[in-house]
């Protein structure tokens, strides 16, 4: 991903995951990518909505199962806000069934990451998400 280093600048992330270890893993991975924006964290859907309403978020990485407001409902709320089409959403889940994955995609999730995922999987999905927001 060296070629788009200049385009990597100023991307704000929101990571929504209630498991502390996994959330830190994602935050660390994002920091390793060398973006110049901010990385916001939330451990439940309500906190995530609050942050989303207060900050300029470009990419959301969100788990399906989170407390207070579940992943799908959170995505639904995000998508029903004004201008949310500029935001790329990657959903993570242990789910492997196509039905559930399609459901998520129908609710406005842009891409899907199945747990457990490797660095390679993560970077591929991240790359696609960045391309999406570049194009918007």
């Amino acid at each position: 991903m060296e070629e788009d280093k200049n385009l990597k600048s100023l991307i704000n992330f929101l990571v929504v995951e209630d498991d502390e270890a996994v959330r830190q893993l994602i935050v660390r991975r994002l920091r390793m990518e060398d973006f110049s924006g901010s990385i916001y964290e939330a451990s439940d859907g309500q906190e995530a909505l609050k942050i989303f309403s207060e900050q300029e978020i470009d990419i959301i990485i969100c788990d399906w199962r989170i407390p207070l407001l579940n992943g799908i409902d959170f995505v639904n709320r995000v998508r029903s806000t004004y201008n949310s089409s500029k935001v790329a959403i990657i959903m993570m889940s242990a789910e492997t069934e196509m039905d559930k994955i399609e459901l998520a995609l129908n609710y406005g999730v842009d891409d899907y990451l199945t747990k457990p995922f490797t660095t390679q999987d993560f970077r591929e999905k991240l790359k696609k998400a960045i391309e999406k927001i570049k194009g918007r």
């Binding site: 270890a21 457990p116 995922f117 490797t118």
Partner: peptide, 11 residues
Amino acid sequence: LKTPLTSIIGY
């Protein structure tokens, strides 16, 4: 079951 495994594989 897959959540701790995500951290193990990730790290």
